[in-house]
């Protein structure tokens, strides 16, 4: 049964009601961008992408070294711009396959799969 409109609610004063609200501020903590090595020598292993440009390859000069003969010495580069990484094939011998497609470069997104010969890495987006 509908409530009578002229029935007075003792808690309402002048058309407003005071209520108690607890506010918990939402803070999105920064999270690192990362590559997870899921197949290949040393897997499983996480690599945090801390710098704006990161080179991955077989060489000890690479920022991320994966000791596989399927990889070129400097196989790929990752560059961060506007909060997202782009992957570039550095003219590698076995190429860079993004989700099964041989690419020259690509903007990466959460869960993207990078295959370099028999080496497989999964990209995880971070938060700046």
């Amino acid at each position: 049964m509908p409530q009578s409109p002229d029935r007075e609610d003792p808690e309402i004063h002048g058309g407003t009601r005071e209520i108690s609200v607890k506010i918990t501020p939402f803070t999105a903590a920064p999270a690192p961008f990362s590559l997870r090595l899921v197949q290949g020598p040393g897997s499983p292993r996480n690599f945090t992408l801390a710098r704006e440009e990161v080179v991955l390859g077989r060489s000890s000069e690479a920022d991320i070294q994966v000791d596989s003969t399927d990889l070129s010495r400097k196989h790929l580069a990752l560059r961060r711009e506007h909060g997202q990484y782009t992957v570039f094939d550095l003219d590698s011998r076995n190429g860079v396959y993004l989700n099964g497609v041989k690419i020259h470069s690509a903007v990466l997104h959460e869960g993207d799969n990078l295959q370099l010969g028999s080496v497989v890495l999964v990209y995880h987006e971070g938060r700046e």
């Binding site: 782009t86 993004l98 099964g100 497609v101 041989k102 690419i103 020259h104 470069s105 690509a106 903007v107």
Partner: peptide
């Protein structure tokens, strides 16, 4: 055939 969804920022040689 390799089938994929065209996406922004993807470059193929």
């Amino acid at each position: 055939a390799v089938v994929f969804g065209a996406r922004e920022g993807l470059e193929l040689r």
